[in-house]
Structures are given as structure tokens and as C-alpha cells.
Design a binder for these strands. Structure first.
Length: 420
RNA sequence: GCGAUUGUAGCUCAGUUGGUUAGAGCGCCGGUUUGUGGUACCGGAGGUCGCGGGUUCGACCCCCGUCAAUCGCCCCA
């Protein structure tokens, strides 16, 4: 007889369980609470979109679009793509669902995203992000508000220590373009001294050379032209207002003039919250301003800012910090004699209805059940045995008096009512 | 796509320079002890040693291939 082979999980997907799942839920719950404090509206977005939603807005040459998208044809022959990020889909909805009427609009969401990449620590093919966006707001105050929210989120998760906010400006479109050309010129001069990867980047995405980890590149990056020398007066003023706003809001930040973002649509403010506690995947939350994005989807000029945070990465930090409350179990029921099973089941149902978290041990060798119950770590152990003389089940409780009292008030009447 | 490391019981791992029938702890199941008890002991189920080739009288061990996981490069949250 042929053995049935168990299907394996898809590479880069995760089955999250136990402490990790609790940490994951804790991150999402904290985010939900905080986004309400900042008055961000909850939105639910589709997990897939027409491929062009992403290919147009992220830039055809970016790695995400050119080699990391899960794209497929549906039965109608249309090219669809599992979302690799939230922003593009939200921008699309802003146009197609008439959200322009609510501008400036603050929205928040979270859920799974998909990128075909080699999995490693803190990086998965199906991963999960929190996301917050402000659409239709050109003021630096919007950037500040978003960053303050991110900062508070990390603090309330108890993981702010060792996480720093790296902040930069990419300038407006003319500033960014002038800087880009100067960078290309600078790196071309010493092209042969660059790493192989960076020689490639020089053609495709020269800004990325700036945050290369290769020591050969680092030397050249050190002497590279800085964005500050290319900022227009307006761009400079904008950045100043952001940093002053952060100072006023009490959000600590560090200028990082070599911080760039991977996607084409970013302008002005760019930022990352970074830690060194997660190996190579140190970015825990990242985003910036994307004033040009909505135009690439055929819409009007709509200034916007947003960020996304990796839930898995946040959850790993939370778990490290052991900030999680263990599952509270109020009462564990033990059926030490199967003749007491009915009363136990009755009690279990009533206790749960009364709001106690409760579980039951009623299988395996009866003489070993009590030990199992003890190991469950409940506040109260409620044991059911059978009295031969009275010919009925009897209960016994152990635990702190106030708990025993409350629980017995529910259980005792059920025991007394047996057989009536 | 590239590199490094690792694949032995449900889990965590031993397994000598290649040598009889591959082990332990935990967990699970059963029994004994105790008898209001987180004890101790005994027993049981569970392995094609990731998969496929090769070398050898003989492979968990050596060689090749392959798959997977982990970590890193790239890229990103």
C-alpha cells in the first residue's frame, strides 16, 4: 500500500503558534488601540489587485516589481498580483472609491503581504504588516503625526529601547533629480572601485549604493555628494518643519543622510525605525512621503505620507522582552471518576458562561488526571470524585479563598441538584 | 539568484576511527506506589536515520546529487 505523503507547507509561510502567536496578537491589538487615539480610520483592503496597480506605482525597475511579485493570470486572462505592500492598493482605492471627499484622510490597516524572496530571519514570503497612511495632506504636521504614532506604538509595545528613528529627506522632485545626477557622476568616476552589486545599481538605482554594506562602497559613499547641497529652499524648509515638529512632540530622531528608500515614489521625508537585535533585518518600521504616487495611477496630485511595520519583526522583539502575560486560566476541572462526568460538564459550561476561563481534564488514566490538572497552572483546581455511600459525585476545590468562594457559588448548586 | 551551516522518535538531542537488534530526556498511553495528591518506579506505542544514487564484506557515519530548514548576500517591514 502506497504511503500518503504529507503535503509540506509553502516555503516562506509560517504557522504561528504559542508564545509567538500571542506576541503577534499583542502587536496587532496595541496598534489597533493606538490608531484610534490618533483617529486613524480602519480600512480593509483586498489581498490582490490588478498587477498594474503595483508595477506602475512602485516602479518597473525596483526589485519588488521585477522579481518579487506573486503574479498570476485569473480565469479571465487578467494579470493579478498578491499585494507586496499596502500603499499602492490604498492609493488605488482613494481614486476608485471616492475617498478624495474625506481628504485629508487618515487610514490604518494590517494583514498579509507577499513577496517572492529567499526566507531568512525576520523575512518571509507571506509576511504581515501594520500600515498607516495620511492622504491629501501636504503639511509637515502630517509627517510628524505619523512619526509620533509610530514612536508611541514602539514605546507601548515596550520595545523602544535599542530602536532608533533614522530620518532623512530626499527633497522634492527637482532636488532629488539633481542629487541623483550628481551621485551617478560621482560614482562613475570611480566605477571600478565599486562592488559588483553597486556597479549594477549605478545603472538601475544609484541611490541604493548609499546604504550598501560592502566596505569597498562605504569608502566612496563617504565622499559622495550629500542631499543637503541640492535641496531647494522649499524642500529645506519642509524638512526643518518636520524635525522641529518631532522635537516639539518629544520624538527622538537621528539624521541619516544616506538613508534612502527602495521604492520610486518617495519624496521629502524618509524614515526607518532600526534595531540591531534582529540580525540582518533591522528595519522594524519604515516609510515616508510619496507625493507623486497617486499621479502614477492616473489621479490628481495628492500629497501623502505613510509607514508600514513588520508584525513578525515587532513580535520577535516583544517576545525577547518577555513582556507577554501568560494565558490566564482561572479554573481547571478534573474528573477523577467518570461517574462524575455529567456534573463536571455542567459545571464547566456554567463557569464559562459566568466569565471564568476554564478547562477540563477527563481523559487518560483517572489516577493520573489530578497531576495533569496541577500542571495546567490554574488559579483553582476543581476536582470531581464519586462517593459510593451517597451514590453521587462530590467536588473539592483548592486555591485562593476568594476564587474558591466565587467558583463554588456556581458549582455547589449543580452538585446538590444531582438526580433531582 | 548566490553562499555557509544543519537534517536521527511528536519535541530537544546523543550515537566513538564505518562493525550485531539505533538510544536518552521530555511528551503521550497503560500499570504499581501514594491517597487530597505537582512523588517514585515499571512497562508500552512511536524511526524505511530528509530523499535518491554511489563506495564498501558491511553506511546514521564516507562521496555525489536532490529537497527542506536556518543564517547571510541581494532586497526589504
Amino acid at each position: 500500500m502506497a504511503k500518503i505523503e504529507t503535503p509540506r507547507p509553502i516555503r516562506g509561510t509560517q504557522d504561528i503558534f504559542g508564545t509567538e502567536a500571542e506576541a503577534f496578537a499583542h502587536v496587532v491589538e496595541t496598534f489597533e488601540r493606538i490608531r484610534k487615539l490618533y483617529r486613524f480610520r480602519r480600512v480593509e483592503m483586498p489581498v490582490f489587485e490588478k498587477t498594474e496597480v503595483f508595477s506602475r506605482s512602485l516602479g518597473e525597475t525596483t526589485d519588488v516589481v521585477s522579481k518579487e511579485m506573486y503574479s498570476f493570470e485569473d480565469r479571465g486572462g487578467e494579470s493579478l498580483t498578491l499585494r507586496p505592500e499596502f500603499t499602492a492598493g490604498i492609493a488605488r482605492a482613494y481614486l476608485t472609491d471616492g475617498w478624495q471627499q474625506y481628504a485629508p484622510l487618515k487610514v490604518a490597516t494590517h494583514g498579509p503581504l507577499f513577496r517572492y524572496e529567499r526566507p531568512q530571519k525576520g523575512r518571509y514570503r507571506q509576511f504581515h504588516q501594520l500600515d498607516a497612511e495620511i492622504l491629501g495632506a501636504a503639511e509637515p504636521q502630517a509627517d510628524v503625526e505619523l512619526l509620533a504614532m509610530a514612536d508611541q506604538l514602539l514605546k507601548e509595545l515596550g520595545i523602544a529601547e535599542g530602536v532608533t528613528l533614522q530620518l532623512n529627506t530626499l527633497g522634492d522632485a527637482p532636488s532629488r533629480e539633481a542629487w541623483r545626477m550628481a551621485l551617478v557622476e560621482h560614482f562613475r568616476e570611480s566605477r571600478d572601485a565599486l562592488s559588483e552589486d553597486s556597479q549594477e545599481r549605478l545603472e538601475r538605482n544609484p541611490l541604493r549604493i548609499l546604504d550598501s554594506k560592502d566596505p569597498r562602497d562605504k569608502a566612496l559613499v563617504h565622499e559622495a555628494p550629500r542631499i543637503d547641497d541640492f535641496l531647494s529652499g522649499e524642500a529645506e524648509r519642509y524638512f526643518l518643519q518636520v524635525t522641529e515638529g518631532l522635537d516639539a512632540a518629544g520624538v527622538a530622531w537621528h539624521r541619516n543622510a544616506t538613508l534612502v528608500r527602495g521604492l520610486d515614489y518617495y519624496r521629502h521625508t524618509a524614515f526607518e525605525f532600526v534595531t540591531d537585535r534582529l540580525g540582518a533585518q533591522g528595519t522594524v518600521l519604515g516609510g515616508g512621503r510619496y507625493d507623486g504616487l497617486i499621479e502614477t495611477l492616473g489621479g490628481p496630485h495628492v500629497p501623502a505620507v505613510g509607514w508600514a511595520a513588520g508584525i513578525e519583526r515587532l513580535a520577535m522583539l516583544v517576545a525577547d522582552a518577555r513582556k507577554l502575560a501568560i494565558d490566564a486560566l482561572d479554573v481547571i476541572l478534573v474528573v477523577e471518576d467518570d461517574r462524575a462526568l455529567r456534573v463536571a460538564q455542567q459545571s464547566l459550561a456554567q463557569l464559562r458562561r459566568a466569565g471564568f476561563s476554564a478547562d477540563i481534564v477527563a481523559s487518560g488514566s483517572p489516577r493520573k488526571r489530578f497531576d495533569k490538572a496541577v500542571k495546567a497552572g490554574a488559579r483553582v483546581i476543581l476536582s470531581f470524585t464519586f462517593d459510593e455511600e451517597q451514590d453521587q459525585a462530590v467536588r473539592a476545590l483548592r486555591g485562593p479563598d476568594e476564587w474558591v468562594e466565587k467558583i463554588d457559588a456556581i458549582v455547589l448548586p449543580l452538585v446538590l441538584a444531582q438526580g433531582q
